[in-house]
Design a binder for these strands. Structure first.
Length: 887
RNA sequence: GGGCGCGUAGCUCAGCGGGAGAGCACUACGUUGACAUCGUAGGGGUCGCUGGUUCAAUCCCAGCCGCGCCCA
């Protein structure tokens, strides 16, 4: 016998191991089944499970479990990425706690430390994924720094270099002074900061007392100014173009140029130009041949290119000093408070410095072309479709991708320099040495490039590097391209776009056919969860309190396309209750001896209730399958919830009670055996349908109810049921029954008939078929509507409360409890309601244009509804008349 | 400024050309042998505003008002 309540924690721990050990998660390269592949977006190895992960991995697991059941050879490829900066930071912090600096340790020893750290604590998120019930093929778990994946990185780098698609260049980069590394423009986070707009006067050369006023948010950069720009049409400055200003504090003579970049509306209309420290100024500088003067070192301290007084100052100290010195010279026109966006490093959190350095770049412009085309031609489709716009927007405006990072943890760039700086890009040191020897005609000492590659460079290869590329493995042939990539929109640029580029370039095919972009999880108020707001909901905490299945069902139910998820804990609680409901329904089935019967044939039921539930199961299985295949997880969840609670528990189990529960001394109902088998069958099918979303409770119940002892639900086939199980006549009959019971209950409740009182029901004006139904379901009706008798009759007994059901009128003779005034009010309200409908439909039908232009079935439907409403109105009016006559 | 999206019941959200829905919350009643993590019934909505298209608009189009996110 099942326990009284479901205990998620116990069941989860027990079943996960059983699944994994049974090999249920593994794909089968030798299988004849069609493959179904999802590449898991590798979480950061330093990461721990947050709500976003919970959503994305739940969705992926639903897809994988469903497709596995649907007969596909499913591969869900798991793994983690090495997260260059984040991981290096973690390990550096740990070392710092022991008073060790990585530079004292040296590169090799430091990298060893990182590997040690990874071995000890790198698996956190992977274990948390298990608690979520995720079922990837763990045996194939990969890490972006694995030897195989590293070989893929080297090969890709060398090939792209030889094709001219990777190059080295001196450009402005987003420099992170804290990490001492370049970062890509995607890792830049704009933050609104309260600052000032400082207006400085720059004296004009040769015109005593005349100044040009420039406005800036970064006074300290003026030490590197090499020009002033004004708009060509700006009348105020026309005569100054071509002249020079004298840069205060420095004394440099700088040209005044005309450029459309200067906005006459902004500030004074004149802008100082610092081409070595601002991306826009860099472009303007290029157009006008302005000098590039780098005034900062890598820590963003003023260097030797600035006047001696400022050297060594940090950029913020330099700012104060410059302003103070200009004020002393009376060259500050005004200072206005100004709120503006300042680029920050998304991980370091410090303001970034545009800085001129040598870096490696990938030619994203060229690589993006086929990737754009693949989406244009539908080789890869986005779901929902509108994310294509975001993708195109970025891909069509893409810039060269800075792929080098000044870190130690990552894939070191396979480039070696000869004594004269000649670069040799090869897959190994030996190859580089050979190439150098050939170049110089003699072996030489080579120095390897110290930099490593952007983590996303290796992630971009994930869809094929994890399958063994560059080896031509059977896995690669079978599982590339993948079916669907599931991720959040925030990762379209970082990862999706780059996988598209690399996949198309190296595999000559897209990496996945579909990209499903899901929502972001926010808190109940719609705010992004963040530690600083202290509104983070921990999925593991929710799992602990409500169970994994409840959390998964909640996320599925809320994963409607195109809208973010505002997660309120109440929803999780509600779906925990749903799990409890499932548990209790199963207990009930067990208590009534409903066990799987191998001989049961759903198409051959004789009891109407059983023929009905079998059809409802069929409809639900189709609805759920279609919803999952269309990535409409909320619809799948709603169909399941409605079926299990609203149909199976609320009606079917109630309908079968009189059949299953034989009163003392009475003979068993002739349909009892069939009903027990049908109930078990329906419950078992429901467990199948629920399994992808609620794997644990369904697997646990399958253990007690399953048709085949010792099998696991995870490996069972998805129910493939014929449409013929749905019988419209049966549906109509059960629908009538439900409406009759509901109507009686509603009247009883409104008339305040105590639940314990058993009252009679007389159906007047009933057609023969209706009378037959009443007789056929008499026991059920008595029980569920709490009646003492239920029969047809010719006349209404005096003092009846009345209701209408199709052509018949319900009479509930409860003269002793009836309140005439209350009943009159009730009936009057009902009549008015019907009357309102009649007026609405009548108006529509008497509109000639409607009759002329609307489709025939719509007109017909309205005619039917009108007739129904009129019938109802007439019967209710008659009931009212009877009441008035009696009262 | 450009792009995307959202304003539907008290709350969280489905629906998106032909009868306004769900869950939670709320109210009343209920110890009917699966379930109070429950049952039965009920109240509650000019579907942001204004125009337009249409026989028909919560749904399509335009404008406006509020709100969010991304990119400059």
């Amino acid at each position: 016998m099942l326990e009284k309540t479901y205990s998620p924690a116990e069941v989860e721990a027990k079943l996960y191991g059983r699944w994994e050990q049974s090999g249920a998660f593994a794909c089968d390269v030798a299988s004849n089944a069609a493959p179904y592949t999802i590449m898991m977006p590798p979480p950061n190895v330093t990461g721990s499970l947050h709500m976003g992960h919970a959503l994305t991995f739940t969705v992926q697991d639903i897809l994988i479990r469903y497709n596995r059941m649907a007969g596909r050879d499913a591969l869900w490829q798991p793994g983690t990425d090495h997260a260059g900066i984040a991981t290096q930071m973690v390990v550096e912090r740990n070392l710092a706690a022991d008073g060790v600096d990585r530079r004292d340790l040296g590169r090799e020893a430091f990298v060893d430390k990182v590997w040690e750290w990874k071995a000890e604590s790198g698996g956190t998120i992977v274990n948390q994924l298990r608690r979520l019930g995720a079922s990837p093929d763990w045996a194939r778990e990969r890490f972006t720094m694995d030897e195989g994946l590293s070989a893929a990185v080297r090969k890709v780098f060398v090939q792209l270099y030889r094709e001219g698609l990777i190059f080295r260049d001196k450009r402005l980069v987003n420099w992170d002074p804290k990490f001492q590394s370049a970062i890509s423009d995607l890792e830049v986070e704009s933050k609104e900061v309260d600052g000032n707009l400082w207006h400085f006067r720059y004296p004009i050369e040769g015109e005593d007392g005349r100044h040009i006023v420039v406005a800036t948010t970064r006074p300290e950069t003026m030490l590197g100014d090499t020009g002033v720009a004004v708009h060509p049409d700006d009348e105020r400055y026309k005569d100054l173009v071509g002249k020079h200003a004298i840069l205060p504090l420095v004394g440099r003579r700088i040209p005044i140029v005309a450029d459309g970049y200067a906005d006459p509306e902004q500030g004074s209309g004149a802008v100082k130009m610092t081409p070595a420290h601002d991306f826009n100024d860099f472009e303007v500088g290029k157009r006008h041949g302005l000098e590039l003067i780098n005034i900062f070192d890598s820590h963003a301290r003023v260097n030797e290119n600035a006047p001696e007084a400022y050297r060594g100052l940090d950029r913020f100290e330099a700012r104060k000093r410059v302003v103070a010195d200009l004020e002393a010279l009376d060259l500050v026109e005004k200072i206005e408070p100004h709120r503006h966006a300042v680029p920050h490093g998304d991980r370091s959190g410090v303001p970034l410095e545009p800085w001129l350095t040598d870096q490696w770049y990938a030619d994203a412009v060229t690589l993006a072309k086929p990737a754009i085309e693949a989406v244009e031609t539908g080789k890869t489709v986005f779901v929902p479709k509108n994310w294509e716009k975001t993708y195109f927007e970025w891909m069509r405006n893409i810039q060269p991708w800075c792929i080098s990072r000044q870190l130690w943890w990552g894939h070191q760039i396979p480039a070696w320099y000869g004594p004269d700086g000649t670069v040799f890009v090869e897959e190994s040191e030996e190859a580089a040495a050979a190439a150098a020897a050939a170049h110089y005609g003699t072996p030489v000492e080579l120095t390897r490039d110290e930099d490593v590659l952007d983590t996303w460079f290796s992630s971009a290869l994930w869809p094929f590097s994890t399958l063994g590329w560059p080896e031509q493995t059977p896995e690669l042939a079978r599982y590339y391209p993948g079916d669907v990539l599931v991720t959040g929109f925030d990762i379209i640029f970082f990862w999706v776009a780059r996988m598209m580029m690399m996949g198309l370039h190296f595999m000559k095919d897209v990496p996945f056919r579909t990209v499903y972009i899901h929502a972001l999880v926010r808190d109940a108020k719609g705010q992004k969860m963040s530690k600083s707001k202290n509104n983070v909901i921990d999925p593991l905490d929710l799992i602990g309190r409500y169970g994994t299945d409840a959390l998964r069902f909640t996320l599925a139910a809320m994963a409607a396309q195109g809208r973010d998820i505002k997660l309120a804990e109440g929803r999780v609680e509600g779906y925990r209750n749903f799990a409890t409901k499932i548990w209790n329904a199963a207990r009930f089935c067990q208590m009534n001896g409903c066990a799987a019967d191998p001989a049961f044939d759903p198409a051959a039921c004789s009891e109407t209730v059983n023929r009905w539930i079998v059809g409802q199961v069929q409809k639900t299985s189709v609805a759920v399958a279609e919803a999952i295949e269309a990535y409409k997880f909320n619809e799948a969840a709603a169909a399941l919830y409605q079926f299990f609670w609203g149909t199976f528990c609320d009606w079917y189990l109630e309908f079968t009670k009189p059949i299953l529960q034989t009163p003392e001394g009475a003979a068993e109902h002739p349909g009892a055996a069939e009903t027990r088998a049908a109930t078990a069958w329906a419950l078992n099918r429901a467990l199948h349908l629920l399994h992808p979303i609620m794997p644990y409770i369904t697997e646990e119940l399958w253990e007690s109810f399953g048709e085949e002892a010792g099998t696991l639900l995870i490996r069972r086939p998805w129910p493939d049921l014929p449409e013929t199980l749905v019988d419209p006549a049966v549906e109509a009959e059960m629908d009538w029954l439900i409406r009759l019971i509901s109507e009686v209950r509603s009247i009883r409740s409104e008339m305040n008939v105590p639940p314990s009182a058993q009252i009679p029901l007389i159906l007047t004006g009933a057609a023969d078929a209706t009378a037959a139904r009443l007789a056929g379901y008499r026991d059920l009706i008595l029980r569920l509507a709490r009646l003492s008798e239920a029969r047809t009759g010719a006349d209404a007994p005096a003092g009846s409360v009345q209701g209408v059901l199709d052509e018949a009128t319900l009479q509930l003779p409860i003269a002793d409890v009836i309140d005439v005034a209350q009943e009159r009010a009730r009936l009057t309200k009902e009549v008015a309601k019907a009357e309102g409908e009649i007026v609405k439909i009548d108006k529509k039908l008497s509109n000639e244009a409607f009759i002329a232009k609307a489709p025939e079935e719509v007109i017909e439907e309205n005619r039917e509804r009108l007739a129904e409403e009129r019938q109802k109105r007439d019967r209710l009016a008659a009931a009212l008349a009877r009441l008035n006559a009696a009262g």
